[in-house]
Amino acid sequence: MNLIFSLIVLAILILIPLIGVGVLGLSSLFAIFIPYLAFAIFFFGLIYRIIDWARSPQPYKITTTSGQQKSLSWIKHSRLESPASSWEVYLRMFFEVFLFRSLFRNLRADFDGKRLIYGSAKWLWLGAILFHFSFLVIMIRHLRFFVNEVPSFVQKISAVDSFFQLGVPPIYITDILILAGLGFLLLRRLVDAKVNYLSYASDYFPLLLIISIALTGILMRLYVKPDLYAIKQLTYGLATFNPALPKGNLSMLFYIHLFLVSSLAAYFPFSKLVHMVGVFFSPTRNMPNDNRMSRHINPWEYPVKYVTYAEWQEKFRDVLEEAGIPIDEEWTNVAQK
């Protein structure tokens, strides 16, 4: 049901440029206006989300300590799991953001009799890493369409990525890996009972959307070739704010690819995909476990009424005296004042 809904939405998204460009001929709307709008939504939306989170304070320091705290000098302190200083926190965040350390924690190998078993969770880490890193590399590779003189690091990454010279033009390794990662993540949602049970359409949709983007990209590279020179004229124009529709023929597949990318960008700030920036805000990870060493301020902390010693002593004066527990006269006076 949720999957079908996502597929329908995706089909509509593919149909829009097909009709818009193919039938109505609104080339510049789809090549220039919509991408600009989508990326404006992406940038302003995400900055809005960031500021929105930042508007709420983090009142208490609630680090999740997954390792030994810094205490006595002779006890080995776990720097990554229970960071006590800022740079240890940066290190923890680095491992968290770039290597998905918490997911990796699921890694576990067990022996059931003689058979070695791996649970699904390790695969989750692998699938996630494959997908995210491939996505990053693919994005960097795409800089060749946006910059006139392509920087050398982009050239190097592309060269490494097409290391296996299979066919003309060579296949990118990340193209295969991203599909493998995404395919796994999607399959997992369909097959793993507990994940399937808690998946919404908004979980399937981004996966399907990114898969479609990757597939249209791969199709263009290998089979249905567009005029790259014309594409670069367009994209370079977009990046330098001199947008113009090139003379050459931008293929239909390119319009679909561009529209899906625009959809992803516009959808990003309003979906679960904001975890990309949200992870940096996570208070259980980005705070040091130094609560007893330094003070954390809560801006809305307010005084509360509690039963004071003077009130309490008055209430229990008789039993205190009878039990021989000392009465503090100094504080009796405080109460009377």
């Binding site: 576990r108 067990d110 059931d112 078993i117 649970g119 009972a193 507990k194 049970y197």
Partner: peptide
């Protein structure tokens, strides 16, 4: 019920 597949699959 719903979470039976988990109990069947996870063998640790």
């Amino acid at each position: 019920g719903e979470s039976a597949p988990f109990f069947r699959k996870e063998i640790d």
